[in-house]
Amino acid sequence: MINVQSLTKYYEDFCAVDQINLKIKKGEILGLLGPNGAGKTTTLRMLTGFLKPTSGDIHVKDFTIEENSLEIKKLMGYLPESAPLYHEMLVYDYLTYIANIRELDTDQKNKRINDLVDLCGIREVMHRPIGELSKGYNQRVGLAHAMMNDPEILVLDEPTSGLDPNQRVEIREIIRRISKKKTIILSTHILSEAEATCNRIAIINKGKIIADDKTESLKKAASGEYFIHISLKNTSLQKIKDKLGSISGIVKIEKENSTNKIIHSKITCRTDQDLREDIYREIKKTDWTLLELYREAKTLENIFRELTKENE
């Protein structure tokens, strides 16, 4: 459905997006995930035809962005970050305006606005100026704006940023409700959100895609590994390494920090078995004092942090 090839964008000398390749199939919900300034917004802006790429191609269906940007804009609905809308306009006037620009005819227009108002839950603010709305409502009006033409592709730039947890859940709920028949691309820097809404995640950092896989596969990759944190007294890191290094399944032992002769260390395990018992048994044989021992599951959060840190 969407095919992006070696997409690059320079702002003056600064490379915001560097040779990105992406293929998005119909019906996918792709989460673009990355720290702030990673190039998510720039990528989405180029995808929606707002910014011209420095180089690279974007194909949507049979259209290319240079030649048929108007056709592509007709297929897409886009909600920019923090939903900039005309503050002075009433919600109803604004939606009518968008419907007119999108060339909906009169019957269709009223029906569509009615449907969207119910879907996004904005009936009670229809006759208020957009500038007076709370951030949550503003975002919902933005969603209604993006979905006015019932687009095949919906592009949402940080749809939940700046919202409180309840509003976030509501927006997520709306996205899930509409996701059945649509291709959705959304960007976020909140992992749990990508995990909850997307069926595919692309992690982007410094303008490059550094991981791109189905959400489940990414999670599975994470589930094979976990960490055990231990805090010990009367020992040294070397002794710990000698003693525990032989246990099969332990990949790495690192010192996190040490205070008052207590050594806090982090053990990376790559196995399906729980190694806590083995570690405890080994430590029991020595005269070390065990102060703490707990297991931390490796989550997408860890993968994300590892991937985005390595490139620094």
Partner: peptide, 9 residues
């Protein structure tokens, strides 16, 4: 709002 305007057809 320029961004919302220009991403309309």
């Amino acid at each position: 709002t320029y961004e919302t305007l220009l991403t309309l057809p």
